[in-house]
């Protein structure tokens, strides 16, 4: 079995001046190359898990590993760690720190002490990849929320981290912006980046993720392939309070005899294709 990219082993974390730990004996492994959705109710510890993963918070107990190498909270080690783990915050406004789009994307690159020609080359490449060339000189406070989200993501991806953690990336985005984000994430994933998103958007997770982690009361209750998780979605106690993805709900509302030996469709296209096949079968029988 291959070594996980990132692994939490019995991690405990409690915020100062609070009684209950947010993370309680949390253990989970993130495999390389996956598209993982981290699900859980508000307060279940999703964002905190990301902050611990990025080395921003130090866990009270337990350990975090990168490909078997333990996270050590020392400046040089943390600097190297944060090049591996890119973190996108829930509120893009929080993440954008410079004045213009180009300046903000270059911020992380400058922190790496790269030579100026390399900074310029990587900056231009990132601006091109995220379709931000025209906005390069635009002040950040003139951008729409969707554009800010794109700039925030570009700022993280300019550093080319092997692991990208995104906290609620679809919040406040309309349908078109969400679809655009999905395309961007697919492109990033295809280029070899492992992606984990914490989300309440079950429909997004259902269509996009190939691995599902469910967090409840600070510990991981489910971590499995999305096909398996969604197949058992209705029977799992942990998923009950999260609701049910629309497409899956629609699929399950069909008569059981119609769904025989068929995997639930994961996209609208798959759903319509499955319905087409179904009607063809029904008409063929007659």
């Amino acid at each position: 079995m291959s070594v996980p990219l990132l692994e939490f082993r019995h991690v405990w974390f409690r915020y100062p001046n609070t009684l209950t730990p947010v993370l309680q004996d949390c253990s989970v492994a993130l495999g390389a190359g996956r598209k993982t959705a981290l699900l859980g109710l508000n307060g279940s510890g999703k964002s905190t898990l990301f902050y611990v993963a990025a080395g921003l918070y130090r866990c009270d107990r337990g350990e975090v590993y990168w490909q078997g190498q333990r996270l050590v909270h020392q400046p040089a080690a943390l600097r190297q760690w944060r090049q591996r783990v890119g973190l996108g915050f829930q509120d893009p406004e929080q993440q954008l720190v410079a004045a213009t789009v180009a300046e903000d994307i270059s911020y992380g690159l400058c922190n790496l002490d790269l030579p100026t020609p390399e900074i310029e080359a990587r900056l231009e490449q990132t601006l091109r990849e995220f379709e931000l060339l025209e906005l390069a000189d635009c002040p950040l406070h003139h951008l729409s929320l969707g554009q800010k989200r794109r700039v925030a993501l570009a700022g993280v991806m300019a550093l080319a981290p092997p692991l990208l953690l995104l906290d609620e990336p679809t919040t406040y985005l309309d349908h078109t912006q969400t679809e655009h984000l999905r395309a961007v994430l697919d492109r990033i994933h295809a280029a070899g980046t492992t992606i984990v998103i914490a989300t309440h958007d079950l429909d997004f997770a259902y269509c996009w993720a190939d691995w599902i982690i469910i967090l409840a009361d600070g510990h991981v209750v489910v971590s499995d392939c999305s096909d398996v998780v969604f197949d058992q979605w209705q029977t799992q106690a942990s998923s009950q309070c999260l609701g049910i993805p629309t497409l899956l709900n629609l699929w399950l509302s069909l008569p059981p005899s119609w769904r025989r030996q068929r995997q639930p469709p994961r996209t609208v296209a798959e759903f319509s294709h499955a319905l087409g096949n179904l009607f063809r079968d029904l008409l063929g029988h007659r």
Partner: peptide, 22 residues
């Protein structure tokens, strides 16, 4: 929040960005 964001993006004690010379 800004503190966390700066740290996650490799803040080294000095705020440095690349500025275009247009």
């Amino acid at each position: 929040g800004t503190n966390l964001a700066l740290l996650s993006r490799g803040f080294t004690g000095q705020f440095r960005v690349w500025r275009s010379p247009p």
